[in-house]
Structure formats: C-alpha cells, structure tokens
Design a protein around this nucleic acid. Structure first.
Lengths: 213, 213, 213, 213
DNA sequence: GTGTAAGCGAGACGGTACGTCTGGTCTTCAT
DNA sequence: ATGAAGACCAGACGTACCGTCTCGCTTACAC
C-alpha cells in the first residue's frame, strides 16, 4: 500500500511551485496593498481591490497568501526590510554614548517621528489592530516586527547595567516597557498625545522612579 | 403666511421616538451581540446574526445604532455598568491604606484577574481592536471606559503625593502609564505573559526607578 | 338557537364599527391611492405611501381594507360612480336609434375616448393587471366594473334581435365579445393601436361576418 | 495630453463576458423560475427563491437579467421553443383542409387545451399580467410570443380569401381578433368559461356575422 | 358633564426580499 | 503550468415595505 505521504495531491490543494512565481506580481501586490491601506484604510481594502490595482488575478493572491491580513503583513515586513536597507549603515542598534538617559530619549524621539510618518502609520496601525483580534497574526506581528526592536532596548539596558547606570536586579525586558508601552498605548488607543517632551518625561520617570529619593 | 409643508425635519431621516423604544429588544440585542462576539469573534459577528439571535428585525438594530461596532460598544458599556452595580459597594476608587505601593499592586492584580475573565475578554478585545483602526470609536471607547478607570489612579497618586510617597513634580496622568500601559500592551498585543508577579514588578520598577539609588 | 350572524366578536378580530368611520380619511385615502397609481404606477404604490400621502395611520388602511389592491379597487369604483354622477342623466344605457350598427359604433367610439383618458388609464390598467394574476380580485373587478357595462350591450343586442337586425339564434353575451374583446385586448396587451376607425371596422366585421354573403 | 485613467468603460458597470457564461446555471435558473411560478405563483416568486432553488448565487441572476419578469420571460421563451422542438413536425402553420371554418375550430380547440395545461398556465398568465402593467415587457411578450401565433391566422385567412371563403376586403389582422380576442379575454380576465363549444360558436359568429343573411 | 370606548395619526416592531458588494473557489485562455 | 481575467456560489450589507402592535389623542355616545 502506498505511503500516506507520497500522494501528490491528496489533501492539500496542490502547493504551487514557488520557483515559477512572478516576482513582478509579488511586488505589485505589495505596493497595491500598502497603497490601498494608506489611502482608504484597512477595513475598506479588499483582496479584489488589491488584485485590481496590482493588475493581477485574484487567484494569484489566494495562491500565495491566505488572507488580506497575511498579504499586508508580508508587505509591511518587506517595506520594513527595505526601509532598513535604505537606512544603510545606521542599523539595528541603539547608540551608546555612555549616558543611558540621553540615548533612550534620542531613540524614543526617533520612534515618535516614525510613528507619525504617514507611510508607516496606516499599515502598521491596521496590522496592530488585526493582531489584537487575530492572535495568530498578532504573534507573528510581534515576533517579526516588535521583538527585534525591543531586543535593542534590552541590549542597551544591559550595557547600562554593566556601567552601573541601571540597577543590576531589574529585568531589562520588563524595564523597557516602562517607557515603550506608554508610547505604544497612546499611539494605538488614542489615550493621549505623543511628543518628544512626553517621551523625555517617560524616560525621566522610569529611570528615577516616581518615589522621592 | 401658509406653510406649504408641515414636515419639520428637512435633512434627517425622521429620528426615531426614543420613548417608544422596546426595552426588551434592546436587552436581547445586547445579549446577542456579546454572546456572538464571545462565541465566534468580532469579525464573524454580523448584524444579521445579532438580529436573528435576538429575535429582532434588522431594522430595529439600524434604527438605534449605526454599525456593529456601535452596538457592541453600547452592549459592553451596559455590561460594565451592570458588573459595577453587581460589584456593589466596593466601587470606583482605589483603596488608600497609606502604602501606595501595596495599593497599586492590589488594584493591578485585580485588573489582571478581570482581563482574564472570559466574559469580558472577547468583547473588550474586539472593541479595543476596532478602536485602534476606527479612530472615532476608539476615542469613545477610551473616554467612556478607559479614562474613568485611569482617573482613579490619578486620584490615588495625588494622595500619595500629598503623603510624600510620590515626587511632587510628577504628572500623575503620565506616571500611571508606567505600570498601566505595560500591562495593557501585553494583553492587547500578546507581547508577554500577564501575572500578579509581573504587575508587582511593574509597581516596584515604576516607584523606585530603574536607576540605582 | 342563536343567530349565526349576531355574534359580536367571537372569532374575528373585532370587526370595526363602521358608524364611527372617518369619512375624511376615507376620501383622503382614495385620493392618495389614485394619485399615486397615476403618478408612479401600481407596483411602486405602497400602503405606506398611501397612508403618508393621505396623512393617515397605516392601521386606518388595514382596518378597512385587506390589501393595496382592495383599496385601489374601491377607490376606482368610487371614482367611476362619481364620474357617472357627473355625466348626469344620460347614463347606463346604449342609445337605440333603430340602427344597431350605428349605435354600436357610437358607444365603442366613446369607449375608445374613455380608455385614453389619463385619469382612468393608470388605475384601470393597474386593476386589470392585478386581476389577471389575482383571481379573486379579478372576479370582483369583472363583476363590479365590467359586467354592468357588458349587460348594456346584451340589452341592446336583444332589442336588435327583436327588430330583426341580429340573428335570433345568437347568444348576445357571446356576440358582444366579437367587438368588445378585440378592443379590450389591444388596450390591455398593446397588441395594436386603438382608434375610431378600428372599432368601426370591428362592428362591420362582426355584424356582417367575414364570409362573403 | 495623457489620459489620467486607463478604465475603458465609462458608463456601464463592466458588461459580463457572455462566452464564459455557465450554461448549467442558466438552465437551472429557468427551471427554478418556471417551477416556482407554477407552484407558488408569480407574486410569491422571488429572485432569492429562484437563486436558492437553482443552487446559484443571486449575483449570477442579476448579472444576466434585470428583474424577475425578465428572467421569467426568457425562461418562458425557452420553454416555448423547447415545446415547439418537441412538437416536431407539426409546426408553425394552421392546417388548410379547404374548409376554413373547420380549420379555425380545430386550432382554437387546441388553443383551449393548451391554455388549460398547468405547465403553461401559471407562467403565461403571470407574464401576461406583468405585460399589462409594464409596457416594455408587454411589448416584448407580444412580439415574441403572441404575434408569431397571430401571423399563422393571418396566413390562413389570406388563403381563405384566395379560395373565396372570406371576403376579399377584410383585413386579416383585424379579422382574426374576432375569435382570438374573446378567448384571450375570457382566459385573462375570467369574464367567462372556456370550452370547445364556446370557440366553435365564436368561429360561427365571426364567419357568418351576427346579422341575418 | 363626565366616563368610556371606539377610531384615529403615528410609528416601533418582527419579518422578508430587495439589489449590491465582497470573499474565496473554479474555469478559461494566453503566455 | 502560471498568471490575468472574471464567472461562479455564498452570504452579509443597509434599505424599503409588509402587516401587526402599542401609544396618546381626539371624538361621540351613554349615563
């Protein structure tokens, strides 16, 4: 009797051959997806609309992705990688000038600026929202996009611990949330305005504590 | 002068008469909406489905609400009020035992417990997600549900300032974010596990600061 | 044994008290119904629309009539009676000048003129159409509106038989259809144009026969 | 000057491609439409019902037809063609035995039988009714279904004229109405019963005239 | 003259169907 | 065999009316 695995197309719907994949279509789909999300928002972006704008058949999308969220996630990952490459030599690290407070202030100010970049705003907000409600996507979003950035904070805080600027007993992964999460929540949930002063204040409070010294 | 038309309302599509509203239908719609969101999730909850489960005509929903999100928001507000009433005498205030650290730990532990209550989880997550992407709803969600709770922290922190347990120069509205936002983000975005130890740690870090004293 | 009729409200849904009926509303409903049918056609005329235009509650319509068709039928009957009263003393009879051919030509010419009166056209066409598909209404329509007119032809043809102008062995009720039905069909089904010449021809063919003499 | 939009179709909502049309769906829709009209009547037949019974999406109906009446008209035309093909060799002509009276009696008797065939009754009555009130449909109904049949009478009457059995000066198109229209009216409007005796009588009256000879 | 019980205007209600839109699948043809 | 195109089944959308059911509010008859 035949091995249960060797059947070419028993259960699965004949996995497509990735080597024949059209790179042009993939790019066009990414561009269309990001463009539509930026222009009309995530909810009004449809697979049909992406296909039409990309000049692609719907099946070409469904062949390679499972859903609108999936397309957008990959498109956004691609955009991020691209942006990272463009950023060039100043890459995946938080500067270490020796003054952890100043360094954190600087990187948070840069984050504030990026959160306001309309190129990123719509898709990242859309993905974050979908991730809230779609746990599977949310975890991928966090793992692929959020955690890599948070890891930089962990590294910088560890260096600060070695330099004696941060208590040795704090868990850096938790510590970073004291200034990152407030910014994230204000951005995501409109719970308050975002500004350089605000993030500066967060760094101050977090490092020095709310209690008097 | 003879008015040719007695119609008073020019633009609106004849606002319904709220005094004749069926309380029974309203309750049935709330229950159906919350039930469906809990069972099949927000995305698969439809107005048609809510109407069917509530034993109500679709028009009765569209007469009083403008969208699925609107129904769910009100349903959840109602649920919250109801829960608050049931909770009884221990209501809208954070206890003040004189030890601000202990008080914050206690209330955050209670919040952790509530976030895990399946009765609240699905609808509040759904509303939060919708609020991320739908600014109008998001602002209502924050104003009606989030801010009232945050205000309690502001009050407690101010008392702590008066008692000399919190620096007089900190802005309580920002300060509270140091322990509230991390919890919120972990819950919303699955960026990490939630536990009593975790929130205890947040309170410690926030009050004492990350820097050595 | 109790009279089977006198029961006040056993099974029925409490028959309304006709003595208290509002004559003003009845008239307003007739006018609204005829007006709407004339303006937007039967299909787009709704009970709701009639009620709104008549300044009347929907229940006032459903209290006295069973359906849109029923309202319109009565409205049209009322209109016909009114028109008949206006027409004055020369009413329900076909003139008898002694020349049956001339008399039939005259009355058919008058019918042609009436069929073209826009005041009658829309409602009578609408009723006729509804009667085609709704047998109950159709029979009432025929009994109340059509048969009384046909009876006049029967009378006139009988007189002609007595005068020796029409074969004694023909059934007048069938004979009249030879000239009435063609006109009716052309009008109802758009199978051909309607004119005085046309009806004159019908009378000629019917009386003299198609076969050579 | 460059065209800002490549969209070729300005007004139309992208006409569907008829070459890709599903023949299976078309047949299923015809069958469902005729079946429903026969079973529950025209008024209670809905597009939704047709789609459901045909196992077809609603859009597939709206893609190819504009309304319920339109579907039914085509379905009925198709049915008629089919019936004609089945009828086979005995086709589109009225027999000519040399005796015009006998021939007309025979064909009218056949018509009576057909009018009572329940397979035809419901849809043709429904279409006729819709045609009364919807002029556009009515004219198509007449042109496609009625006139072709009437033409046969015209041909037969002309032959009778050549044979000297019908007056040379009568217009056959009008003459045929003397026996066809009465039957049509009785059937459509329930103005009287239909039988072979009745149509025999009509032929007699029409050929020989009402006046004594 | 006052009470009571209808009819009334109004319109909310549970429903059905409308005609449209989108999701995801399947089919056809060109490359 | 992939990809563009788009027809297909499915089903939710928000709207329009259906016929029923309260609501107050006039009437008008009975007391």
């Amino acid at each position: 009797m035949a091995a249960p695995e060797s059947a070419p197309a028993a259960s699965a719907r004949t996995t497509p051959d990735a080597t024949r994949r059209s790179e042009k279509s993939r790019r066009a789909i990414y561009d269309a997806a990001l463009g539509l999300v930026a222009e009309v928002g995530y909810a009004k972006t449809t697979v049909e609309g992406i296909a039409a704008r990309a000049g692609v058949g719907k099946q070409t999308i469904y062949r390679w992705w499972s859903s609108k969220a999936d397309v957008l996630l990959e498109a956004f990952l691609d955009l991020s990688e691209q942006a990272a490459r463009e950023a060039g030599q100043a890459p995946y690290v938080i500067p270490d000038t020796g003054d952890v407070a100043a360094d954190l202030r600087a990187v948070l100010r840069a984050t504030v600026d990026q959160l306001r970049d309309p190129r990123f705003e719509a898709p990242s907000r859309a993905l974050a929202a979908e991730g809230v409600v779609n746990e599977q996507l949310g975890r991928v979003f966090v793992a692929k996009l959020l955690e890599p950035s948070l890891r930089l904070y962990v590294d910088r805080l560890r260096a600060a611990q070695r330099a004696g600027q941060v208590r040795a007993d704090v868990d850096p992964r938790i510590a970073l949330e004291l200034f990152v999460s407030p910014l994230a929540q204000r951005w995501l949930q409109y719970t308050g305005p975002i500004s350089h002063e605000y993030t500066d204040t967060l760094v101050d409070y977090a490092l020095n504590g709310l209690a008097p010294r």
